[in-house]
């Protein structure tokens, strides 16, 4: 018996699929190899659907602008910010972050010489592909300084813990 649903299905058969084939149309035979190939640039993947302005992705941190006011630590609901007393900056754990953007709202920022208005130290990027094997990988911890430097700085203090 033909029903309305049946006509709908036939109509959809004639249309293009709605799915965005991100990252690849079909599951590859070897996922790790595919990822390596993409990293090396030998293979291209389909792009995800573009995100709008104001999208709340991974947090960006500019330690130059950070005045160490600790307001972001006060408001962060997930306690994703850690205070580093030695350098008076913060460290951000992306795996704990709930992407509410309160820290960006509350950040006062710093006016560098020659600027008219202060620029915030924290901002939300559009980056949302954050899957990783390790929750403490470099990609998922936003450090005030570059990784090598901070490692050198951190070693004595982590031993003390």
């Amino acid at each position: 018996m033909p029903t309305k649903a049946m006509f709908l299905m036939i109509r959809q058969l004639l249309q293009r699929p709605f799915t965005n084939p991100f990252p690849v149309k079909y599951a590859p035979k070897n996922v790790t190899k595919t990822i390596e190939k993409v990293k090396l640039g030998q293979m291209s993947i389909n792009n995800p659907i573009p995100v709008p302005d104001g999208f709340r992705g991974k947090l960006k941190y500019d330690p130059e602008r950070c005045i160490g006011c600790r307001l972001c630590i006060t408001v962060c609901p997930a306690n994703a910010m850690e205070w580093i007393p030695e350098v008076r900056k913060i460290r951000h754990y992306v795996t704990r972050c709930m992407f509410c953007g309160l820290c960006v709202d509350v950040c006062p920022g710093k006016k560098l010489p020659g600027e008219t208005a202060p620029v915030k130290a924290l901002s939300m990027s559009k980056e949302f592909l954050l899957a990783d094997y390790d929750k403490y990988s470099d990609n998922l911890i936003v450090e005030p300084t570059s990784k090598e430097q901070s490692l050198n700085n951190q070693e004595p203090s982590s031993d003390q813990k």
Partner: peptide, 13 residues
């Protein structure tokens, strides 16, 4: 495959 296309999906190979 055809069932998937009827529901606007890509479907399995």
């Amino acid at each position: 495959k055809i069932s998937a296309r009827m529901t606007s999906r890509i479907g399995p190979p």
